[in-house]
Structures are given as C-alpha cells and as structure tokens.
Computed example of a mutant assay.
Amino acid sequence: MTTVMVEDLDPASADAGVPAHFGDPMREQRLLETAVGLVDRSNRAVIAVPGVERASWLHTITTQHLSALKADEGTELLVLSPNGHIEQHALVAEDGTTAWLDTEPGAGEGLLKYLEMMRFFTRVEPRDATAEIAVLSLVGPGAAALFPDLADPRVGAVPDARFAAGSVPAGATSHYSVRAFEGGLARRVPLGVDLLVPRARKDEIIEKLNVPRAGLWAYEAVRVAHRIPRLGWETDHRTIPAEIGLMATSVHMEKGCYRGQETVARVHNLGRPPRRQVLLHLDGVASDHPPARNTPVELAGRAVGFIGTAVRHHELGMVALAVVKRNVPDDADLSVGESAAAIDAG
C-alpha cells in the first residue's frame, strides 16, 4: 500500500503529519461514504482538563452547557472573543476524571493559553496532552457497528428567535456517547467514531482494528459534502457561530453569561447573520485544480466571500465550502478564480 503524506504534497500544509492518501483517493472516499475506513487524524491538538471543578469551570468560560457533563459524555464547545467572533472550537470527551478537548492542528496552544488565563483559583489543571493522545477516526455507515454500545449522536434544534425563557433544555446541545477503549476513549460523532488513544500505541491499535485505511483527503471530501466547518478553514477573524452552522452543536442559548454572548443573542434575535456558509459547485472547465483556501468568491467582479475548503468529490465533482455574504442569492452566477460557481441550496 502506497502511503503519501500530506507534507509530501504540500510542505506548508497545516495538516502535515498524517497520510493524505494511500494511492487511490477516490476509492478511499467511496469507502468512507459506503462502508467504514480508518483515518489518521493524529495531527489534532489535544488538551487535558483534569480537576474536580472542570465541568462547572468550562461551563462558565465557553458557549456550551457543561455544568452537568458526566462520565461517558461528549459534546462540542466554542471560545468567543468579547465581540462574539470564534477564537477556538473543540470537541469534548469526558471520562470521569478528565475532560479531553481536541482541536485543529496548531490551535492547541491558543486554546491552552486561554484556559490557563481563565483559571484564577479554580481547581483545574489544564495541560497540553498532544504528545500523549492521538486522534483516529472511523468514518462511514459501518463505524457504529464496531462500537454498538455507543449511542447515536444527538444534536438539538436551534430555538426560534425570541424563544420563550425556559424552553431550551439544560445540558449540552450536542450529545456524543463516550466509552473507554484501549487505554483511551471512543466517541460517537456524526461522521462515525473518534478514538482518542495513547500516542505510543497508535500503530499497534491501527493494526489491531484491522479496518481499511483512508487518507485525510478522503476525510476532507466527506466533511465538505456533509457541510461540516473547520476552525481556520471556514472561519476568519470575523466569523460568528451563526454564520457557519455551529449554533446547534456548540452553543447553548440559555446557559448564562460567557464571553461574546451578547453578540450571539443579538444576531440570533435579529435572525440576520452577516454571512452564511454554503456548498459551492465549481465547473472545473478552466481549471481542474481545486482553488486554494481564502480564494475570493466573486459576484459580477466583486468579492462577496471566500473559499474555505475545496475538494474533488467522487460523486459531486469539484466542490467547496465557502462563506459568502448573507444577501447573495442561491441562484447567483458566482466565480472562483477561473471557475464558475453555483450554490447548492439543498
């Protein structure tokens, strides 16, 4: 099996350190869409938060309702700026003694710095655990069968604007079942099952699982098709949660004060975020190369947004997640570099 690393293809990529593909990216995509494949995502940063007050503390400093987080539960959270812009996004897995937060490659340092800054006299001890823990993802409809004791993920609906007080249930807005696995944790998520395993045992565990391998290219294609945003890819310094579909998974609308809450509440009540995330179809006539991240999206020669992640999908062709101005109509004739682009309104 030919292994091609991300850095072999793009030495400057933020995703360096994991396989891009194993010789046939399209076959790997089909594997993840129809069966199950194992994707090495061990380039993700991991922060450990032990301490008896971790749940109530994380509850007060993030967007998620975490005060009642129990062992064998997981969710997602955001850290916002005072103006409500997204600074950090992490998935959470709680094992009863520690909350494990995994985030994008390169984002761990900023997340840990924020957590340390907000400790005060709270009984918590956040630390960088990236050298200890590696993230592996089992992706596809067959992933759940490998861990039948993990409940399907549940994501609550975003309440209507000006919802009645007390109508949003207490507790995390997204619920991901967690259990112990090979000295680490297994977490059920929308695309399959994430494994947080001891980094020193990563290769041993991959071999023991005996699941066909797929590279990060295939994972990214599936992620784009499912319209799941990434911090730093579909976000910039101005992004707010309502623009990129993170309200349901990561924001509790009635949990009390946190940094940036005023902006979240105001935008939600008005129902008009300045921008929105869309899936674009690119014609690929002038160029068969997916456009680079941050390539402008233009309407009549005027920039109206930017490309986050562009991929070549085995069924959809060349597609991209983009963030565009809210008032760009679904039937607009857009362009991205040399390619014509159209919004998928589905």
Rank of each mutant, 00 (worst) to 15 (best):
Ala186Gln: 10
Tyr258Cys: 11
Glu116Asn: 14
Asp194Gly: 10
Ala214Gly: 09
Glu338Thr: 13
Asp283Cys: 11
Ala200Asn: 12
Val36Ser: 08
Asp8Arg: 05
Val251Trp: 08
Val4Asn: 02
Arg179Gly: 15
Glu109Ser: 13
Gly183Asp: 12
Lys325Phe: 00
Arg54Tyr: 00
Asp333Cys: 02
Leu69Gly: 07
Pro50Val: 02
Phe181Arg: 10
Gly184Asn: 08
Arg199Lys: 13
Pro25Tyr: 02
Ile244Cys: 11
Ser339Gln: 15
Val285Gln: 12
Asp236Thr: 13
Arg312Asp: 10
Val49Tyr: 02
Pro159Met: 14
Val323Met: 01
Val278Tyr: 02
Ala218His: 01
Pro190Lys: 12
Trp57Gly: 02
Val52Ser: 09
Pro159Trp: 14
Val189Asn: 09
Ala145Cys: 01
Pro169Leu: 14
Val18Ala: 07
Val49Gly: 05
Val267Cys: 08
Arg276Tyr: 13
Arg119His: 03
Arg272Tyr: 13
Val251Lys: 00
Ser56Gln: 12
Gly108Thr: 07
Ser335Asn: 08
Asp236Ser: 11
Met26Arg: 02
Gly23Phe: 07
Val328Ile: 12
Glu125Tyr: 04
Ala310Pro: 02
Ala221Thr: 14
Gly156Cys: 11
Met118Thr: 03
Leu138Pro: 01
Gly37Glu: 03
Gly215Glu: 10
Leu91Ile: 05
Glu243Met: 15
Glu94Ile: 07
Pro126Gln: 00
Asp194Ala: 12
His289Val: 15
Ser335Thr: 15
Ile206His: 00
Ala12Met: 11
Phe147Leu: 05
Gly51Val: 06
Thr263Trp: 08
Leu279Tyr: 02
Asp24Phe: 00
Pro329Tyr: 01
Ala143Gln: 04
Glu53Gly: 12
Ala265Cys: 06
Ala93Asp: 09
Ala129Trp: 01
Ala218Ile: 03
Trp233Lys: 10
Leu31Gly: 10
Ala143Leu: 09
Ala322Gln: 06
Glu315Thr: 14
Arg44Met: 07
Arg227Val: 01
Val197Trp: 04
Ala218Asp: 06
Glu262Phe: 05
Asp102Gly: 08
Val264Tyr: 07
Ala143Arg: 01
Met253Pro: 11
Leu32Gln: 06
Val297Arg: 02
Gly108Lys: 00
Ala242Val: 10
Val297Thr: 03
Pro105Thr: 10
Asp333Ile: 06
Val323Trp: 02
Asp10Glu: 08
Phe181Glu: 15
Ala221Ile: 12
Ala218Cys: 11
Asp236Leu: 09
Val49His: 06
Val251Ile: 03
Arg238Phe: 14
Cys257Ile: 09
Arg201Lys: 11
Val124Phe: 03
His237Asp: 15
Ile133Ala: 00
His314Val: 11
Arg230Tyr: 12
Phe120Ala: 15
Asp194Ile: 09
Leu138Phe: 02
Thr130Lys: 00
Leu185Asn: 07
Gln277Tyr: 00
Phe163Lys: 09
Leu101Cys: 10
Gly140Phe: 10
Gln261Glu: 15
Gly171Leu: 13
Thr103His: 09
Ser339Asp: 15
Leu299Trp: 06
Ser287Met: 12
Ile343Asp: 08
Met118Ile: 01
Val193Cys: 09
Pro126Cys: 01
